[in-house]
Design a protein around this nucleic acid. Structure first.
Lengths: 354, 354
DNA sequence: ATGAAAGCGCTAACAA
DNA sequence: TTGTTAGCGCTTTCAT
């Protein structure tokens, strides 16, 4: 077993309380005892055991993070932002993945709660009706949603506090993207989307697509939902692409990975981007900017989303602790909507036959 | 405060020991008490507090992970592999980043040790001489290196146990990549590399480049080291590219992100890949396969690296615990070398002027 | 300025 | 099968 505060105290010839005090508020101990203790710490290679501290203090200075996957750069960047901010604020990060399985969300959170994390940052499939969030709320564990954007309509139950979230305005962002395509002269625009039941963002983005199409007086098409980046399996998609008469002049994809996969598939079909068809993505992942043509997309600031989420969460944790101490009431949560930008790129150009 | 084992015991009318027993080995408690206790647990919404358990047991079922960054897909995939395997084995993951700063490595590990993680998986700048690894060894905390590949020469000190690592054979893989370029007919091949002092892999890969060049009887060139993907800053690179007489016919890059950045820069200079110059990367990140031309690269199985690393680590942790119980000696660590494959791609083609 | 002692939630002897 | 009890490492009154 590693040296404990006790061994340090023994070696220094003081009580464990004094050692503890030195560790916490160094001002409250005399210079010479401090000196002695420091020497003992050095000599023993003592390192405070957070487990003991946490048990006693009832807080762990650790936050839990739950994201669907790390295979999508977007979430990796977000986690990166979280970690950087956490380190700055002296918090640690415990991390889990759900593989887009809603049923794994609660298990993930349960595990984190077992570790007594002080708060949780998560991206869930559907933030509207979500048992995991209800659990968190019931247990009064502060949490912040990332990417999930609470539809206002889901807050009709006014008995409930608004939930904290950090995201872009997915609907408006998608609308901007499609509007960009419209401005380029496209009239037949097809949306390709990840499964709606795995991502409420995808639904919001489809609404944005509808908004833009309607605003332009164009006929919206039903979205084609595809499994994670395997377009070859989508029969309706294949069919649509095979027939030049039905083929859209532009594709709007609910995320960049999908857009890039689509471009690959289009090439396999002998179609060229943007000459034969334009493609626009969503997310603005960095590699999109390295391609030729550059992938047109809506850029969301993923790392910043992580950063803001963490700071918001820590704010809530520390306010919560203060409130608990003061016997106060919980505080209203903030809905952060970060700005998005449209990245124009060579993959979206005017249609060849207007 | 959340309900503890004590409240459960009270409500069920049994002692806390019985509750604990039910939680740990359910067989050792009678069916009816089990029933009563389960009801109480349900009713109170009790969830065992790992902090208490860990403090008592001296182990946390948590592993620490330290990677340079999550901006590079390679590490994100690796972390993904770690998390998946950890979840399967019922371990949790605490995660940190070093931003490629060697001086942050020890701070990161210190923090993890404070949390009493049972073991650590890390990718360090230089595994050959690394104070952090020495610390881990001194503290007898099991650890596994990922991507870092221990040069055999660094193990001359036979008094020390070999360290555990999971990686591809970077040198051989780079050699294969360059050999591929040679076979295509290239004779003037330039290596572009990340900073050697931030990555011992980069050095190994340069050795691989030298091996291939020498084997082919070609004159190797000094590597051009560049800061993370900002080739525009590399004066020697700019100069070399400006002059067609000095320009290499192929570029071998120490990682895919660098290769993709290079391709973008080449386009900006008016050069076309692969017509004017071939480019080959290292890592085999998935997006490389979606580009046009497909990025030729050496594929390393990042997610599998994470998976193997975690399983190796857990093996060491549990063997270590068993050995400690039996008073045995530490076990020799394994050096896992996973297979790599060369991905041929349109970015590497025969030179136009042989 | 320092020490003594209680207790955070849990497990593991040891008793019964 | 069940209960009693000590104690993991630490913080925090309450004394001194």
């Amino acid at each position: 077993m590693r040296p404990s505060i006790k061994q340090v105290a023994n070696l220094a010839g003081v009580s464990i309380a004094t050692v503890s005090r030195l560790l916490n508020k160094p001002g409250s101990v005399s210079a010479e005892t401090a000196e002695k203790i420091h020497r003992s710490i050095e000599q023993l290679g003592f390192r405070p055991n957070f487990t003991g501290r946490n048990l006693r203090a009832g807080s762990s200075r650790t936050v839990g993070v739950v994201v669907p996957t790390l295979s999508n750069t977007v979430f990796a960047q977000c986690l990166q932002g979280i970690e950087l901010a956490a380190r700055e604020l002296d918090y640690s990060v415990m991390f889990t993945t759900t593989e887009y399985l809603p049923e794994d969300e609660s298990a993930a959170v349960e595990l984190l709660l077992g570790h007594r994390v002080d708060g949780v940052i998560l991206t869930v499939a559907d933030a509207g009706a979500n048992a995991t969030l209800d659990l968190l709320e019931r247990e009064k564990i502060p949490f912040v949603l990332t990417y999930n954007q609470l539809a206002l309509s889901s807050d009709v139950r006014t008995d409930r506090l608004p939930r904290a979230s950090v995201s872009v305005d997915n609907r408006a962002a998608a609308c901007d993207a499609v509007t960009h395509l419209v401005k380029l002269g496209h009239r037949r625009i097809q949306m390709l989307s990840g499964r709606f039941n795995a991502s409420d963002r995808a639904i919001q983005r489809y609404y944005g697509y509808l908004d833009a199409m309607q605003a332009a007086g164009l006929e919206p098409l039903p979205a084609i939902e595809v499994e994670r980046h395997t377009l070859t399996a989508a029969a309706d998609y294949q069919q649509m692409m095979a027939n030049p008469a039905h083929r859209p002049t532009a594709l709007f994809c609910s995320n960049d990975l999908l857009a890039m996969s689509a471009m690959r598939d289009l090439r396999a079909l002998g179609l060229r981007v943007p000459r034969d068809i334009s493609v626009m993505g969503f997310d603005g992942i960095p590699v999109g900017g390295l391609m030729e043509p550059v992938l047109a997309s809506v850029v969301q600031p993923s790392e910043q989303i992580g950063d803001v989420a963490l700071r918001t969460l820590v704010g809530a944790i520390e306010r919560g602790a203060a409130a608990a101490a003061a016997g106060g009431a919980p505080v209203a949560a903030a809905r952060h909507v970060l700005p998005h930008t449209v990245r124009e790129g060579g993959s979206a150009a005017p249609p060849s036959q207007p």
